[in-house]
Design a protein around this nucleic acid. Structure first.
Lengths: 192, 192
DNA sequence: ATTTCTTCTTGACATATGTCAAGATTTCTC
DNA sequence: GAGAAATCTTGACATATGTCAAGAAGAAAT
């Protein structure tokens, strides 16, 4: 149940069994079925989720009721609405399971407790944010001012997992283009 | 010279005079004139810069030689290419002064030293990344799948400083639109 | 297996934004 | 303060992408 989390921590910060065990005890396991929600807009996001198995995605709803996909997350990654988590303001995000999931949840108090009392944990979180920041930066690089085809090519190169496990219309939304455009681009790319 | 940096740290992590002094001794002050570079693409980024005064921006160069603006940064903020900084790979970014600047530089070894030896510093950096991550997330929210006018309105609301201190054509690039389009949008918005 | 829901494709057409080119402003520099 | 850069505006036109609508294909549910 905790394999990937332990691996994720060990990869970034060498830790003793004791420290790892202490961490473990603060997480709450949870299963989520496809289409179920981890967070719904309007609620305050009170937890971060580490994904042991499955896939989720987060999105906002625009004026016309359409989805705008913000993030995809798979095994070994974290997902949350950090803005709401830290500010305690209502979230504008929905986080929904794309597949049946096994999650490890960490709520606000537990997160604070670990930060204060387990130095390794703070280091782990720092490195996590560091990587997450760089990843977002690269996402912007791979999106901004590019044509729809360039955006999609970039995604295929950098994030093959997404292309393989996620419905096309969600990928389109993630790239900021319409499903129709994406369909046409793929057809065109295939014929070359 | 160190006022804003001290303020930035104190705001996030209560620290003693001693800790603050220890931090200070690891930074190197540097002045930069308008149009001078802090980093040029092809070089490895070996430092992070805290801005005591002035403004800078970072950008990549695309196939046709055009600029694609990634970030603007003003007094009280940090700028760097974290990807290159951490991976030690060549940077694809240029970081250029928009105005005459006073910077405090921290190179890789000094950063590592502080992380290891000053717990407050690690906490400071963690919170910094946390905020930076949330800010990037919001940038994506304010860009993705929006019309040019919506993107610009969002910028005006959220980042008035940028609109006031940065040339329009760089703002256009930052939003992923052309200067001509931005000019037309502004005209149209003014007449309402 | 049949039905139902979800996802993907395709066509015809509309529109936002880009491109190119020229001139008008504004801002810097000496 | 004059000249040179840099920046911003405007027009005419091209084009990528969006919109709407319908049907096909695929996956999930009973």
């Amino acid at each position: 149940m905790f394999e990937l989390l332990i691996k994720s921590i060990q990869d970034k910060v060498p830790s003793t069994e004791e420290e790892l065990h202490l961490c473990k005890t603060h997480f709450t396991p949870k299963r989520l079925r496809r289409k179920q929600f981890l967070l719904q807009e309007g609620d305050v996001c009170n937890r971060m989720a580490f994904i042991e198995k499955g896939a989720l995605y987060s999105y906002t709803t625009d004026a016309k009721g359409g989805q705008r996909v913000m993030q995809f997350a798979f095994e070994g990654f974290w997902i949350s609405d950090l803005y709401s988590f830290f500010t305690r303001e209502e979230s504008k995000l929905n986080i929904e399971a794309l597949e049946d999931c096994e999650l490890l949840l960490l709520d606000h108090e537990q997160h604070d407790y670990l930060l204060k009392n387990v130095r390794q944990y703070e280091t782990y979180i720092r490195i996590l944010y560091q990587n997450a920041y760089v990843a977002l930066q690269q996402r912007i690089e791979g999106t901004l001012g590019l044509t729809a085809e360039e955006k999609y090519s970039h995604l295929v190169e950098q994030y093959a997992t997404i292309v393989n496990r996620v419905p096309q219309h969600l990928i389109a939304s993630y790239l900021g283009i319409t499903p129709e455009t994406l369909s046409r681009i793929r057809k065109q790319m295939a014929s070359r």
